[in-house]
Simulated assay, not measured.
Amino acid sequence: MFNHLFGFGVLNAERMVKMASTWTTVPPRYRCEAGVIEQPFDIPSDGVLELTVDTTACDGKQNHVRYLEHVQAFITVASSRRGDLTINMTSPLGTESILLNKRPNDDDSTQGFRKWPFMTTHTWGEDPRGLWTLRVAFKGDVPQTGQILRWSLLLHGTQQAPYIDEILDSRNSKLAVSKKLEFAEGLLHDLEDGGRVH
């Protein structure tokens, strides 16, 4: 649970100080270009443009990302009024991120966005493999026109779970869910290979 304006809430300073005394550095970070769409798509004036990227998160390569830290969506878009443009992104596990909200004072009609690095940390700890969905729409009183010209998805994260204690403490955390999926995939792989499950 989080608030799009205020994040995860008030920080617990006492707990932070206690955690600092036994702090363990996070695993190495990797970066994976998950996919690119490089053709123009019209943004409807009264509907939603939906684009998807299906990614393996560089599985099988040295830069494979198994646990997300943050995600960047580099977007190039042109529109008749940039301030009416809204962009949302949904992860394979269903986490929604508002990348761009309506801005009443942004009257730009010529600059648009050029490979603009929109970022979200709302998918922290998730397994990035699967279908990412980008939804682009106009929210305003006057109909507008525009095009998405390019969308590239860049994943940043680790190959090991960054906080193993989080997995043990909370069975419902994103890391716990990712670990359960990883375990289930391992069992399935063993069964497919004729292995025995105890």
Rank of each mutant, 00 (worst) to 15 (best):
Q62M: 07
N63G: 04
N63V: 02
H64R: 07
R66T: 04
L68A: 10
E69F: 03
E69P: 00
H70K: 14
H70F: 15
H70I: 03
V71F: 09
V71S: 02
V71E: 03
Q72S: 09
A73P: 04
T76N: 07
T76W: 09
T76H: 02
T76F: 05
T76V: 07
V77I: 12
V77G: 06
A78R: 10
S79R: 01
S79N: 03
S80C: 08
R81G: 05
R81L: 05
R82D: 06
D84C: 11
D84T: 14
D84Y: 04
L85D: 10
L85C: 12
T86Y: 08
I87R: 06
N88G: 07
N88Q: 14
M89C: 02
M89G: 03
T90M: 11
S91Q: 13
L93F: 12
L93E: 15
G94R: 06
T95K: 03
T95S: 06
E96G: 00
I98G: 10
I98L: 13
L100N: 01
K102S: 04
P104Y: 08
P104H: 08
N105R: 15
N105H: 13
D107M: 15
D108F: 02
D108N: 09
S109T: 08
S109A: 15
S109E: 12
S109P: 07
T110M: 12
Q111D: 14
G112H: 13
F113L: 10
R114C: 09
R114S: 14
K115M: 13
W116E: 11
P117W: 10
F118G: 01
F118K: 02
F118Y: 07
M119W: 00
T120M: 02
W124Q: 15
W124N: 15
G125E: 07
G125S: 10
E126G: 06
E126F: 02
P128N: 13
P128C: 12
P128E: 13
R129W: 02
G130R: 05
G130F: 04
W132C: 06
T133P: 01
T133N: 05
T133S: 12
L134C: 11
R135H: 09
A137F: 00
A137N: 06
F138E: 03
G140K: 09
D141C: 01
